[in-house]
Amino acid sequence: MNPDNYLYLSAILFTLGALGVLIRRNAIVVFMCIELMLNAANLAFVTFSRMHGALDGQVIAFFTMVVAAAEVVVGLAIIISVFRTRRSASVDDANLLKY
């Protein structure tokens, strides 16, 4: 097997994550799809690190994980505070800024 297949797999996973973000309405599921996209990008980083024989890709993937963890914490806090005021976790219901 050619190791390029990892790159194709990461492209497919990223695409599926993007599809989920676009078609799901529940904020938590949208968030999980974003996590899937970040993970797919990490897989590409690790594969490129192996391709070039340098560990920089792995360090970048490590930083991606740090940022993803921070993002999950803040995002879920926002979802909880939106849920408290609107009693809904749907991304379409938080539309007060529109008016």
Partner: peptide
């Protein structure tokens, strides 16, 4: 991260369906 997700799910209700 997944623990946090499940925890928030528990807080805001599992029954909330997609509109």
């Amino acid at each position: 991260v997944m623990m946090l997700f499940l925890f928030v799910l528990m807080l805001i209700g599992i029954e909330s369906q997609d509109s």
